[in-house]
């Protein structure tokens, strides 16, 4: 028994990364970044707002949270809709009570189906990030390039038609990309994407269609990871966010501005038995002298101005 000789060849073994998307960079040796008013930690809430068609697509893969039972899966369809009808507004109330603006990563279908949501987001001064067309709009290798670029355009067009503003940001479903995605997003004029979780501050990627910034949306700190996947309580979640904030605020004293992304799912965090603890966390964060609640675009613009 032996392996093909090519298995012991390493064509990309060289200084730097094994791809050309971005160079290696150490967070702790970069010039420190300054947030407005001398704040130390940018709190970046991102609410994913999703519509799951009752007939799921597995091409290229089935989105997390999608239908699970034989048709008709009313339990999952309606439980997700609970988040859209109620949970979202509980989350918005929590943030608006402390004057915070948030980013909402929105399926295009949300804008088409529920214009009242777009109006509420605009009235609150929140940012809309493009989050594919609907929850059948997953991306991975195997999706034809034409289909992927149509999906990106379809999402941006639907959100622009409903809101009057073309989204500057993009979040892929499950943060899943193909090898083409950064280039296709740059071609579509997207200023930043949120999918790569390898850093804790924005950084630039280069593609054949020009640069695109990645603003990392830490999946380890998401309600989906901590509450759904790891099955921890909302009290533990809130404790973990306070621990993270404390560490980052301390680090900011010596290394410059830091970011704490709060990735939220209305049908997970917006439930009656969880929302009180979450509101408590938002109030606690708002009381911290170094906290700066910011949208993805706010963070991008302050970072870009210092590059």
């Amino acid at each position: 028994m032996s392996l093909d000789p090519s298995y012991l060849e390493y064509p990309h073994r060289r200084p730097g990364m094994d791809h050309a998307l971005y160079p290696y960079s150490n967070l702790f040796t970069r010039p420190p970044i300054a947030w407005p008013a001398g704040k130390s930690v940018a709190i970046w809430p991102v609410i994913s707002l999703e519509w799951f068609p009752m007939v799921p697509s597995d091409t290229p893969f089935r989105a997390p949270g999608h239908m699970q039972t034989a048709y008709p899966d009313y339990r999952h369809y309606t439980a997700r809709e609970y988040g859209t009808r109620i949970g979202l507004f509980r989350l918005l109330d929590a943030f608006e009570a402390v004057g915070a603006k948030v980013s909402v990563a929105c399926n295009g279908a949300i804008a088409t189906r529920y214009p009242a949501i777009i109006e509420a987001l605009q009235a609150g001064g929140h940012e809309i990030i493009a989050h594919s067309t609907d929850m059948n709009g997953t991306i991975a290798s195997g999706l034809a390039e034409g289909e992927e670029s149509a999906l990106i355009a379809g999402s941006l067009d639907a959100l622009e038609a409903a809101s009057g503003t073309r989204p500057r940001g993009w979040l892929s479903i499950a943060r899943s990309q193909s090898f083409n995605t950064p280039r296709l997003l740059a071609e579509a004029g997207v200023a930043y994407m949120c999918d790569w979780v390898n850093d804790e501050l924005p950084y630039a990627m280069s593609t054949e269609a020009g640069a695109i910034v990645n603003v990392p949306l830490n999946h380890e700190l998401s309600d989906r990871q901590i509450i759904n996947v790891q099955q921890q309580s909302v009290d533990s979640y809130a404790q973990q966010m306070r621990d993270a904030y404390g560490w980052l605020a301390n680090e900011a004293q010596t290394h410059g501005g830091r970011m704490l992304p709060l990735h939220l799912t209305p049908y997970i965090m917006g439930l009656p038995y969880r929302i009180d603890a979450f509101e408590g966390l938002v109030r606690w964060l708002a009381e911290q002298p170094g906290a700066w609640f910011a949208t993805g675009s706010d963070i991008l613009d302050h970072w870009s101005a210092q590059e």
Binding site: L3, F28, A140, S141, R175, W196
Partner: peptide, 30 residues
């Protein structure tokens, strides 16, 4: 984008497994 070993997959998802790769790249950057 590593070559395939017939006895074990490198990544659970088709390459690029952006979350799998980027999560581990966080180690060296941060």
């Amino acid at each position: 984008d590593p070559p395939a070993n017939p006895h074990r997959k490198s990544w659970t998802k088709p390459h690029p497994d952006v979350v799998g790769y980027a999560h581990r790249d966080h180690a060296n950057r941060v």
